[in-house]
Design a protein around this nucleic acid. Structure first.
Length: 165
DNA sequence: ACTGGGTAAACAG
DNA sequence: CTGTTTACCCAGT
């Protein structure tokens, strides 16, 4: 695992890469102590890392600007369950300025009634912003929750001209 | 505004 | 397997 910091207007994000791609993205101010995994030499090559970092930084910048990212880095979702990966994949289908409710996601996955489980899966999303869990609202356009803090959710949405109740 | 029952998934033990 | 927790939802007070 390799960590790379990404400076933006909104602060310094931290990206964590495995040999398969971007595994985690952290908001500014969320210090993690496990900075160096002592599991031998990192398996992610320098050339991959530089390419992925550039793509991640550009995508992050674009989303913080309320725009659609031109391209995304590969994601390493190996830590997630099958259900969580399905939810996260569905989130990627929501464009900037659009929102979906937790139950709409559940229905789209042909598992209506799983709205609450969808909420849990969103909370477990290791790559916020790029995997836009901030575009998922509760029923009736209410804000719902956000692992990075509701102020971030409001900020990201307002940048896309969305104002929840 | 608050409560209760229903629901699905992850996790600890 | 049971109990607990969870970024939910809806119909009643």
């Amino acid at each position: 695992m390799q960590t790379v910091t990404i400076p933006t207007e909104q602060g310094e994000f931290t990206a964590v890469y495995s040999e398969h791609g971007l595994a985690r993205l952290e908001f500014p101010g969320t210090r993690r102590l496990d900075r160096n995994s002592a599991t031998g030499p990192s398996k992610v090559t320098e050339s991959k890392l530089r390419r992925w970092s550039a793509t991640t930084a550009a995508a992050l910048e674009q989303i913080l600007d309320g725009k659609k990212p031109a391209s995304l880095p590969p994601f390493d979702w190996s830590g997630g369950t099958e259900f969580q990966r399905c939810v996260w994949a569905e989130l990627l289908r929501i464009g900037p300025g659009r929102t979906k409710s937790y139950s709409e996601i559940a229905t789209a996955l042909r598992n209506p009634g799983a709205a609450r489980a969808v909420g849990s899966a969103c909370g477990a999303n290791p790559i916020p912003v790029l995997v836009p869990c901030h575009r998922v609202l509760a029923a009736g356009g209410r804000l719902g929750g956000f692992s990075g803090g509701l102020d971030w959710k409001r900020r990201l949405l307002s940048r896309e001209n969305v104002t929840p109740k």
